[in-house]
Amino acid sequence: MLERMEYFELTIYKCCYLILAIEFDDYDNVVSQKDFEQQEILYMHLQQSINHIISNQSGIIDVRMDRDFALLLSSDNENEVNILEEAYSIGDRIIETLSKNSISISIGISEVTCDFEQIGETFLHALDALKYKFNLGTKQLINYEDIKNIKKIESLELTDIQTKINEILLSGNEGLASQFVIKLFEGFEASASKKVVRNTCFMIIMCIQNAINEFSITFEDIFGKEELIWEKLMKFETIYDVKMWLRNVICFTINYINKKKERRGHQLTDEIACYIEEHYREPITVNSIAQALFYNANYLNNYYKAETDTTILDYLTQVRMNKAKKLITHKDNYRIQDISLMVGYKNEAYFRTLFKRWTGLSPKEYKLAASK
């Protein structure tokens, strides 16, 4: 390959080599949405700017690689420091020049190699460095040597995320949401790839979706269109943008839930009371009540306890016991077995035990006491 370069009179030295991979920031929005002619004009402008900067320097070859540009720097001595300094100088000037023309780019810098046969692998390393633009931000010079030994973060368990999201949404506390996001992204900022961050955020959004189902809420209720959530996640260019977006999604969700709680307030407890009043004779449970009212059972029970300082089951028992008291003292002189069935208990022995626990008297003792 060196011989072919010399044949085409491309100046290249034979001691040290280094690659600069140049990439448009926010490629999907800035480049891919343009038509072919506009894309070519943009690339031509980039090419001209690069050529102007390197025109007076030897040992540099520029190559367009589909959506990226690459600069091959070569040196006639084995001093790696010199070629690295040259790479940083060229990179800074390219970023600064294009920035003045409202074009944002980032540059990945490969390691220095003295083996020309390793140029292909070296180019891939420069591209690998660019992947960390997501973590470090746009308009960056990113050296492969700085990121190659970064330890990958451990994956998060879906069940752990779901538990935490449920806790945050139930708390109604935006501060907890911020703490969760900050802690999560502390593990991301130095090491996680765009794919890892997006996949994790995807899991978190799924967990939020599962959690709000318990409140009978959908993303469309909160954000208008559910698709907007997923579309935005796929278009973010930096980890900071994703971090702010995720925090906002959780906080907006908390605000919506809090407002819904305020609106429903006593209405929901009244709905529970009405349902129990109408169905206490039946073998109802917290699950069947929640299903009838279109709520998650755990959420409904926690909400009711927070509002009334008692559980739904205790309230159901209270209603049944009050009904039983009236039936025990009724003039029709119902049998205890019949009363048990009339208030929703098929097992008479269980009813007797529960009645005594609730009133301190057996049904017979209660009837005698009431008749005096």
Rank of each mutant, 00 (worst) to 15 (best):
I22R: 11
F24K: 04
D26G: 10
N29F: 07
V31M: 07
V31D: 07
F36N: 15
Y43N: 08
Q47M: 15
I50N: 10
I50M: 04
I54H: 00
Q57K: 05
S58G: 10
I61P: 03
I61R: 02
D68R: 15
F69M: 12
E80K: 14
E80F: 12
E86I: 05
Y88M: 14
G91A: 09
D92F: 10
I95M: 04
T97L: 11
T97W: 01
L98I: 14
L98P: 10
S99P: 07
K100R: 12
N101G: 06
S102N: 06
S102I: 01
I103V: 15
V112E: 07
T113H: 02
Q118Y: 08
Q118S: 12
I119W: 01
G120C: 08
E121L: 13
A126L: 08
I142Q: 06
N143T: 06
N149P: 05
K152W: 07
K152H: 11
L158A: 00
N166Y: 01
E167P: 00
A177W: 00
Q179R: 13
Q179V: 10
I182G: 03
L184V: 01
R198I: 09
F202T: 00
M203L: 07
A211F: 02
I212H: 03
N213E: 03
T218D: 04
D221K: 09
I222S: 06
G224R: 03
E226Q: 08
K232Q: 09
L233P: 02
M234T: 07
M234C: 09
F236W: 04
E237D: 12
E237S: 14
K243G: 01
W245Q: 04
R247V: 05
N255S: 08
Q267I: 15
D270A: 14
A273I: 15
C274Q: 15
E278I: 14
Y280G: 08
R281S: 09
I284N: 07
V286T: 12
S288M: 11
A290Q: 10
A290T: 11
N296K: 02
N298G: 13
N301Q: 10
T308G: 08
V319Q: 14
R320G: 04
A324W: 03
L327G: 05
I328F: 13
H330V: 11
D338P: 05
Y350T: 13
F351V: 03
R352I: 13
F355A: 08
K356N: 10
W358L: 10
L361W: 09
A370M: 08
K372E: 14
K372G: 07
K372R: 14
